[in-house]
Design a protein around this nucleic acid. Sequence first.
DNA 1: ACAAAAGTGTTGTCTGTACACCCATGC
DNA 2: GCATGGGTGTACAGACAACACTTTTGT
Lengths: 230, 230
Amino acid sequence: MTSIEQYKDHDRFLLAVDCIIFGFDGKNLKALFIKRRLEPEFGKWSLMGGFVNHNESVEQAAARVLNLLTGLDNIYMEQIGCFGDVDRDPGGRVVSIAYFALINIADYSETLMKEHNAKWFSIDKIPALVFDHKKMLLLAKERLQQKVANHPIGFELLPEKFTLRQLQNLYEAIYGSELDKRNFTRKILSLSILNKLEEKDKESSRKGSFYFVFDEKKYKKLEAEGVKFI
Amino acid sequence: MTSIEQYKDHDRFLLAVDCIIFGFDGKNLKALFIKRRLEPEFGKWSLMGGFVNHNESVEQAAARVLNLLTGLDNIYMEQIGCFGDVDRDPGGRVVSIAYFALINIADYSETLMKEHNAKWFSIDKIPALVFDHKKMLLLAKERLQQKVANHPIGFELLPEKFTLRQLQNLYEAIYGSELDKRNFTRKILSLSILNKLEEKDKESSRKGSFYFVFDEKKYKKLEAEGVKFI
DNA sequence: ACAAAAGTGTTGTCTGTACACCCATGC
DNA sequence: GCATGGGTGTACAGACAACACTTTTGT
């Protein structure tokens, strides 16, 4: 790909993508970090990232990077923004586009995780991070909170079937605050976007609690009207 | 600035910024476009944009571009996101960061506007735009609507002193829907972030209507609690 | 029988919304 | 005196928040 005359004279930049990968272990919201294997900041905790290539869109680059670490395709992913301070990376002028991603924490590839020295951290116990990655993480968390209040993306963090308690735990973890069980149940069921299964989860209690699944079709019908989840 | 060894091998990109500049004429929400003077798409309507230079941050580049067209400094500005499709610009691989900006429509420099062939368009009468600029505009409008519902940035679009009617017209223009005058007045005054002046605007009616000014100090006190404007 | 989590209703408060009339003034 | 926009209050409905006890079942 070459640029035409008028574009020739301008500066060119290294472009990176950095991914904030969120997961949920049933109790805490977690984010995935890797031990950096590049100078500068070798050995420090960092977001998973990579450089954008000429033959791919920025979004494709983010999807590629996500796949590289998790082995997963079709991950839910959302752009957070561009981080373009001159000195953000002491290794050179790199402009980075941050994305956040939501995965079912049970799905990632153990092998790949080990290969990359990756580790999950609870969202309130984040280690020191390189460059401006802390800023990216905080912005990602904010965006997640906003988004999850009006869109059914929380389900991306859960297994296919889940109990109402698990769903409530998830929202509590994302917002860092407790919710009333009765109010939560009433509200989420009133949306009619969950289907109750006959099957019960017997792990969490003697009585057992019913599994639910998210019904995308029912949701689509509501979507236009602007659903409030929380 | 040079990159260290590990960064060397990666592709480099032209980086642009594109600015959606919003204004308000008392009746309609407007956006500013220029007649493009570069190939490709010479002579078509386009957002004001420019290339990022090595010695400036992406944000600084946006501020520079905004100043170039309006003559203004310290413009309210917010990043919308990165547009990085491979073929978004037929002139070459250019990744663009879009920003929206809010200005008091009375403030811009006529001279600079003419120099750049710039023109205001009502938000519901937007001409065909080059590249993905329409997408940028739509996203900008959405973000503006979201932001203005919870943050006092609408005032950036108004003169220092304004009437409640003007403020209501602004919100109506941003949302493209009508509001009830009594409910609007009650709500906005209940926030106690406006100071009523003694002076009246006599332009719009025989009776005249009181001017108000936004009180940033009072707002700052509320901010933490999360204000809802609309 | 008991421990542990699941499941379920009611009430008061607040917020949002719908709606109509008098006021002040310049002409 | 009349036309024009400015300014103001009330009542109803829906949403939200607070709150505690019974059910099931494995041990």
